[in-house]
Simulated scan of single mutants.
Amino acid sequence: MIPLRTERLRLRPFTEADAPFVLAGHQSEGLRRFIPSQVLDDPSEVPARIERFQRFDDDPVLGVVAVERLADGAPVGLVMLQPIPPSEGVDRADIEIGWRGHPEHAGRGYITEAAATVLDHALATLPRVLAVTHPDNVASQAVCRRIGMADRGLTDDYYDEPGVRLFVIDSHPEIK
């Protein structure tokens, strides 16, 4: 994904220098509660995670970007735009937007601002983008709503997880 900017934030590719931030962000209580498969307890796993984040660095639309404040360069989260794995037996090829905010920087609107920027960039090319959340993750659901995504209820269609909450936005909603 090309680097993007907002008034307060820079969205950029991850580098090896981001290792301490990646480790801290992937040990948060929120991640443990809502996406335990993404928790990193072993620091030796961080380089592989950063490599995974870098796999779309040359793609003009897809990517996983570090979100940092312009004022001081402090990393505050990440936003991803990538193919979402369908559940077994589901024949779909969808693109998902997702995010992880560092708890230290929560409540300041950084993730909403970054996600809205990535979503605008994506919808210039893609016909539709979706997000899925754990049914109890009201903070992520609030971000979905603030960036204009419609709540489509619970689905079993992604990640082989039963009952995740699905949010969708179409680039041309007037076309059915």
Rank of each mutant, 00 (worst) to 15 (best):
L31D: 11
L31F: 08
R33M: 14
F34P: 07
F34T: 09
I35P: 01
I35M: 09
P36T: 02
P36E: 09
S37C: 03
V39M: 00
V39G: 01
L40K: 02
L40V: 07
L40D: 02
D41Y: 04
D41A: 07
S44K: 12
E45C: 15
V46N: 04
V46M: 02
R49G: 08
E51Y: 01
R52T: 14
F53V: 05
Q54P: 05
Q54Y: 03
F56T: 02
D57L: 02
D58E: 00
D58V: 01
D59M: 01
L62Q: 12
G63P: 07
V64G: 07
V64T: 14
V64N: 11
A66R: 13
E68F: 07
E68T: 08
L70P: 09
L70Q: 14
L70A: 13
A71R: 07
D72Q: 09
G73N: 08
G73E: 08
A74N: 12
A74Y: 06
P75V: 06
P75H: 03
V76D: 11
L78Y: 08
M80S: 15
Q82N: 05
P83E: 00
P83S: 00
I84Y: 04
I84D: 03
I84S: 04
P85A: 12
P85S: 13
P85G: 10
P85D: 13
P86Q: 03
P86N: 03
P86H: 01
S87H: 08
S87I: 12
V90W: 08
V90K: 02
D91Y: 08
D91Q: 06
R92G: 00
A93Y: 10
A93E: 11
A93D: 15
I95W: 04
I97F: 03
W99P: 04
W99A: 08
W99I: 04
W99G: 06
W99K: 06
R100A: 07
G101F: 11
H102P: 11
H102C: 05
H102A: 09
E104W: 03
H105L: 10
A106E: 15
A106H: 15
R108S: 12
G109A: 11
I111N: 15
T112G: 11
T112R: 10
E113D: 12
A115R: 03
A116N: 02
A116G: 02
A116E: 02
A116L: 02
T117D: 03
V118T: 05
V118G: 02
L119W: 10
L119F: 08
D120Y: 01
H121D: 05
L123W: 10
L123M: 13
A124C: 07
T125F: 13
T125K: 15
T125E: 15
L126H: 09
L126W: 08
P127Q: 14
V129C: 05
V129S: 13
